[in-house]
Design a protein around this nucleic acid. Structure first.
Length: 804
RNA sequence: GCCAGCAUGGCGGAAUGGCAGACGCGGCGGUCUCAAAAACCGUUGAGCGCAAGCUCGUGUGGGUUCGACUCCCACUGCUGGCACCA
């Protein structure tokens, strides 16, 4: 390696200089054009910074630095998402206290992060485990509670038998396993704290249309919220209250031939006829056992049991038998359905198994199974002949509503957010249980409720947190009546920590408020947020909900916290996700040591489009490394024999490069932006004449977002004033993008046969006659005349010969 | 099963109707060297040809078009998400 490019010395020197001069610390009060550039904060694991973290941060930093050179004051904070089961489980495994582990992990991460060269504003860092931070997480909970958005309820919740804690629905994987440890999740009935995210379903869904977010992320959220439009319909039962069902296909109501209740529907046992009650009770107990064991098998809609009772069809009065079966879920709709076997596959399978009538009400059935598509209503009395599902759906809803039998209803999949965790490593939920006054909020001036340092923090498994081992912690007095009371011993989900951290950064050094109102108005919402799509339905949905809640509670003046969100891709290795078990995890430190942060950043970002990630190869870093060496060689050459004169030909190449980098960088197409710079460098290398100053200066400016240290070094060696990162982005001179020659391809029947170099902007007729004048073309035409000629100005002339 | 996204040299990728393979890795040949590494120069989709050049080629099959990696239809494979959601 030439002495000129000693990445170690260069990177250390500039990192120190930036820190001394406060280059990365915008004046939050005075900044004229605030730009909040946020990236998802990492969970500080014991393994240290992952190459995936580095990839995300490097890409986000390029964006921030680019915006800065567009004239914005960029605030780019970084912090640590340090609470949570992850850290706690690791602490249990290595038999150390999470508080000790986290302190060293954070210190290690901080050191690794500082070496990446990101423009992090370290004076505003935060860690969610800091009482100065979680005090305000607790404050947030109290505000939500005050606003009616937090409540306590006894409910069936997802329970992880390994982690011994409740999980949010979002933390249960598709196959019913725990997101953290992979154990089969079971159900358990516990008294829990919930946040009323369901109050915002409509807004969470509706606002998405207007948000400048990655489409893939929006789609995941839409799915997760799961809006279904339909109606509820009441089916009368003799001597009982009617049974309400939800359906998205009210138009098929005449095809309903039986009804099914979920086993855990509150009325299932009551509705069973006394003669069947024992048998039904046995069935329900089995179903409950299966549910608790997490063994409820999917796809089997042929199992169930008759309740020995009938409802009436609301329109025909026909007898409709009632069943209970596990294919109907208590958690969706009303937990009971009208079964339309002709037009629903599951109902059809059930009808076949129990020999129940199948009545076709939508024509177009292909015979055999259920026909769930569109068609014309038949066997539907006054509705027959209508086109289903639309507009028949509307007509049927209106008719039912008129007779008081049903009504339009929208159902969502999204459930309220259970935040109670029976674990140790989280912020205690600031509530006190008083035998007289019930659950009472901890008064604000008593925050934070400090998480006590207890030696035995192993989970109890009883449905209580390890804090229930500590009477010193939970014994207290009721703030309302002063009598003896017990603190809530559950801690909150660590997704609550991360649901508001972006609000905290600008005010991270303040102890009097969670977030300063003026600073918040200046800097928020976040201009650009960059992170992984794995958080599309967890973190990003919760953060939006919290912003909406704080908006309605009067604390912020926006509803959407992240104006622009871009999901970055994933770095894979050997075609697979990096994981410890596969042994293909890349540790960035080795590469940063060997090649420098600049070269490694460049490599990561040149692998592919930032939104798509890329495939990591060890040898790949050689390319960017050579590229930087080439630039320093050019710099050397310029310092020896450079010129202030720039030949027009070079100026054209330079402006072409500026154009390409300026076009691709804001679109996060860093790979092609880097390629454009590499092309320019090759062109400079091929230039025999003295190098112009402008070429080197432009390179330093274009490189600044990508390789901040090298760019600074080049800038300084050119004798320019500190700092390259405070310079305006280079301007494009449109004059310089005009070419004096263009290559026009001549093809016959679409196949390239010749080419010619001509002045740009020639009229089509001129291009055509020049093409026909070509010797090669004349020869190939053999005297024939093209039947047609297509001319694409400045690009192609295509001669069409009739084929034989 | 449903919903997305993707499929291009040995590899990562570029080109979104007009010269396929930019840029980079790797490979091959050379220069330098006692030698190696590094560096530098050349070369690198496949096939045919002494050559000029020709033919084939963007997962598969069809279609639209003067012209298709790009648009349309059908299929296959991979990745991610959801999944008894009525």
């Amino acid at each position: 390696m030439p002495l000129d490019y000693d990445h170690r010395a260069i990177e250390a020197k500039w990192q120190q200089r930036w820190q001394e001069t406060g280059l990365n610390e915008p004046d939050l009060w005075e900044a004229p054009r605030p730009y909040y550039n946020l990236m998802m904060f990492p969970y500080p694991s014991a393994e240290g910074l992952h190459v995936g973290n580095m990839y995300a941060f490097a890409g986000a930093d390029v964006h921030g630095r680019f915006q800065r050179m567009q004239g914005y004051s960029v605030f780019e904070p970084m912090g640590f998402d340090a609470f949570g089961i992850h850290s706690e489980n690791f602490a249990l495994k290595v038999n150390r206290h999470p508080a000790d582990l986290i302190a060293s992990n954070v210190a290690n991460f901080r050191q690794q992060l500082e070496r990446l060269g990101n423009q992090f504003a370290w004076s505003k860092t935060l860690a969610t485990t800091d009482p100065r931070y979680y005090r305000w997480t607790q404050w947030l909970f109290l505000k939500l509670w005050e606003g009616g958005l937090a409540y306590r309820a006894r409910r069936n919740v997802k329970w992880c038998p390994t982690d011994l804690t409740v999980l949010a629905d979002e933390q249960v994987m598709g196959d019913g396993t725990c997101e953290r440890c992979g154990s089969q999740v079971v159900e358990r009935e516990l008294e829990q704290w919930f946040l009323r995210i369901s109050a915002y379903t409509e807004k969470l869904l509706g606002n998405l249309d207007e948000l400048d977010w990655s489409e893939s992320t929006k789609l995941l959220q839409r799915h997760w919220i799961g809006r279904s439009e339909g109606a509820h319909i009441d089916f009368p039962i003799d001597g009982e209250a009617p049974l309400r069902v939800f359906t998205t296909r009210p138009d098929t109501v005449y095809g309903a031939t039986f009804m099914v209740l979920a086993p855990d529907h509150p009325r299932t046992l009551d509705l069973a006829h006394p003669s069947c009650r024992d048998e039904v009770a046995r069935y329900l107990a089995e179903a409950a056992r299966r549910r608790i064991a997490g063994a409820r098998q999917e796809g089997d809609s042929t199992k169930g049991i008759f309740l020995g009772r009938w409802a009436q069809h609301p329109l025909t009065g026909a007898r409709i038998p009632l069943y209970t079966a596990e294919y109907v879920l208590s958690g969706y709709g009303t937990g009971a359905i009208m079964a339309v076997p002709a037009h629903d596959a599951r109902d059809h399978a059930f009808a076949v198994a129990f020999q129940l009538p199948v009545v076709e009400v939508v024509s177009g059935s292909s015979g055999g199974g259920a026909h769930s598509g569109a068609g014309t209503l038949v066997n539907s009395h006054e509705f027959s002949g209508l086109t289903a599902p639309d507009p028949a759906r509307e007509v049927v809803i209106a008719a039912l509503a008129e007779r008081g039998l049903g009504e339009r209803q929208v159902t969502y999949r999204l459930r309220d957010w259970g935040i109670s965790r029976q674990r140790y490593w989280g912020p205690p939920i600031p509530a006190i249980h008083c035998p007289r006054d019930g659950a009472v909020p901890v008064p604000e001036d008593q925050l934070p409720v400090v998480l006590p340092h207890i030696d035995d923090f192993r989970p109890l498994g009883s449905g209580e947190s390890p804090l229930a081992r500590s009477p010193e912690f939970y014994n207290t007095t009721c703030p309302r009546c002063g009598g003896p009371a017990k603190r809530e011993t559950d801690v909150s989900d660590n997704f609550l920590d991360s649901a508001w951290y972006y609000l905290r950064y600008p005010s991270a050094d303040r102890d009097d408020v969670a977030f300063d109102a003026d600073l918040t108005r200046r800097w928020l919402p976040v201009a650009t947020y960059i992170g992984g799509n794995e958080h599309a339905v967890l973190h990003l949905l919760y953060a939006r909900f919290i912003a909406m809640a704080l908006h309605d509670l009067g604390y912020v003046d926006f509803e959407e916290p992240f104006t622009r969100f871009r999901a970055h891709g994933m770095i894979i290795k050997d075609g697979a996700k990096m994981s410890k078990s596969r042994g293909n995890v890349v540790v960035p430190d080795d590469y940063v040591n060997r090649y420098g942060a600049d070269a490694f950043r460049l490599y990561l970002l040149s692998m592919g489009p930032f939104a798509e990630g890329g495939d990591f190869r060890e040898t790949g870093v050689n390319g960017p490394q050579r590229f930087l060496v080439h630039i320093f060689t050019l710099l050397e050459r310029f310092l020896e024999e450079g010129s202030s004169q720039e030949p027009v030909a070079l100026a054209r190449l330079r402006h072409r490069c500026i154009r390409d980098v300026t076009r691709d960088t804001p679109e996060l197409k860093y790979n092609t932006a880097i390629a454009a710079m590499m092309t320019f460098v090759k062109q400079l290398q091929a230039t025999p004449s003295p190098l112009p100053r402008a070429a080197l200066e432009t390179l330093a400016l274009l490189l600044a977002p990508f390789c901040p240290h090298a760019a600074e070094e080049i800038w300084a060696r050119l004798g320019n004033p500190y700092s390259v990162h405070q310079q305006p982005w280079p301007e494009i001179d449109p004059q310089m993008l005009v070419q004096d020659q263009v290559v026009v391809v001549i093809s016959i029947n679409g196949k390239k046969r010749d080419q010619m170099s001509v002045a740009p902007g020639l009229p089509s007729s001129e291009l055509q006659s020049r093409a026909l004048a070509s010797g090669r073309i004349q020869h190939l035409l053999e005297g024939r005349t093209p039947s047609k000629v297509f001319v694409v100005p400045d690009r192609q002339v295509n001669l069409v010969l009739p084929r034989d």
